[in-house]
Design a protein around this nucleic acid. Sequence first.
DNA 1: CCGCATCCGATTGGATACTG
DNA 2: CAGTATCCAATCGGATGCGG
Lengths: 119, 119
Amino acid sequence: MPDRRGATRRPEPGCPVEVALAAVSGRWTTLVLRELMHGSRSFGDLRAALPALSAKVLTDRLDDLCRRALVDRQRQRGFPARTRYRLTPAGRQLRPLLVELYRTGDALLRAADGERPPR
Amino acid sequence: MPDRRGATRRPEPGCPVEVALAAVSGRWTTLVLRELMHGSRSFGDLRAALPALSAKVLTDRLDDLCRRALVDRQRQRGFPARTRYRLTPAGRQLRPLLVELYRTGDALLRAADGERPPR
DNA sequence: CCGCATCCGATTGGATACTG
DNA sequence: CAGTATCCAATCGGATGCGG
């Protein structure tokens, strides 16, 4: 990618970098993905794991992930209603990216601390 | 990170994943970083390489990257003014992340195409 | 040449209350 | 239980014009 020909001169939605970034950006997205990396979850499971996340934003995130085919939704109608969310094979491909995000962020934090040595 | 204890239950700014995501998100950010990965650039160099990027947004991006200590600004005052931007050692640490973003996005695009096979 | 100042429309995230 | 419906403040990206 560094210096690959076909490099874009504007942010095109079809650029691979934009596609990956769109998949993980947005507030709470990485935390929802982390939960689903551990296995399938219901709407309520996710709310319990992330108590500060409102229902509206959780719905937004899940809708978005479903539209991108990274998450699969299984509704079981009736009362009480039940819905299970799980990663698709495409969604599972995000794992190395999340690991790399953690690794890079950790390196940046260490670099910043190194400048002002921990007295 | 997957299932690491100390895992956050809300989006805290000190979380490594948030730090790395903040460094590369925002429209045009990855393209500006790509240019700087190739070496130091002036404000005008960047505008020429990314013609559809307005001066205001470029300034926003560079200010942000400087505040995060990922980019270093060297002003040479006078007329005409000159400023050179270059990655700091911390900024260069973003390269593997950008590569991983490209790799993952590419994999997602291939997965999506595979579903509707290219006739 | 390198920005900053303004203004603006669109998108975002969150709070709150209600429904199948 | 699993959402939907409103409403709102804040942020964002972009256009345009001026200033050192």
